[in-house]
Simulated scan of single mutants.
Amino acid sequence: MNVISKENPDPVSLKEEIERLKQERDAIILAHNYQIPEVQDIADFIGDSLELARKAATLDNDVIVFCGVDFMAETAAILSPDKTVLLPAAEANCPMADMITAGELRVLKERFPDAAVVCYVNTTAEVKAESDICCTSSNAVKVVESLEEDRVIFVPDRNLGSYVARFTDKEILPWEGFCFVHDRITTLDVEEARRQHPDAEVLVHPECRAEVIDLADEVYSTSGMIKHVCTGPGKEYIIGTEIGILHRMKKDCPDKECYPLSPQAICTTMKKTDLSRVYNSLESLTPRIVVPEETADRARKAITRMLEVR
Rank of each mutant, 00 (worst) to 15 (best):
R184E: 10
I185H: 04
I185M: 12
I185V: 10
T186S: 10
T186A: 08
T187E: 12
T187H: 00
L188H: 06
D189K: 14
D189S: 13
D189C: 14
D189I: 12
D189F: 01
D189Y: 01
D189G: 13
V190L: 12
V190E: 07
V190N: 06
V190D: 04
E191V: 05
E192D: 14
E192T: 14
A193H: 02
A193C: 03
A193Y: 01
A193I: 01
R194C: 00
R194F: 04
R194V: 00
R195W: 02
R195K: 15
R195T: 09
Q196F: 08
Q196G: 05
Q196S: 10
Q196D: 15
Q196T: 02
H197I: 01
H197C: 06
H197K: 11
H197T: 03
H197D: 01
H197L: 04
P198W: 08
P198R: 02
P198S: 04
D199N: 08
D199G: 11
D199Q: 11
A200V: 09
A200M: 01
A200F: 00
A200H: 00
E201C: 01
E201G: 00
E201T: 11
E201W: 05
E201P: 00
E201M: 07
E201Q: 04
V202S: 01
V202A: 00
V202Y: 11
V202C: 03
V202K: 05
L203Y: 13
L203Q: 06
L203T: 13
L203P: 08
V204N: 11
V204S: 08
V204T: 15
H205D: 02
H205W: 05
H205Y: 08
E207C: 02
E207V: 00
E207Y: 02
C208S: 09
C208M: 01
C208I: 03
C208H: 04
C208W: 04
R209K: 10
R209W: 06
R209C: 02
R209T: 06
A210W: 03
A210M: 15
A210S: 15
E211T: 13
E211D: 14
E211P: 02
V212T: 07
V212Y: 01
V212H: 03
V212S: 12
I213A: 02
I213V: 15
I213P: 09
I213R: 11
D214Y: 12
D214H: 14
L215W: 13
L215D: 07
L215I: 11
L215N: 04
L215T: 05
A216S: 13
D217S: 06
D217C: 06
D217F: 07
E218G: 11
E218N: 06
E218D: 05
V219N: 06
V219E: 07
V219A: 01
Y220I: 14
Y220T: 15
Y220S: 09
Y220Q: 13
S221W: 06
S221Y: 13
S221R: 10
S221V: 14
T222F: 00
S223D: 10
S223E: 15
S223L: 08
G224Q: 13
G224A: 13
G224Y: 14
M225V: 09
M225D: 07
M225A: 07
I226Q: 07
I226V: 15
I226E: 10
I226N: 03
I226A: 05
K227D: 12
K227L: 08
K227P: 00
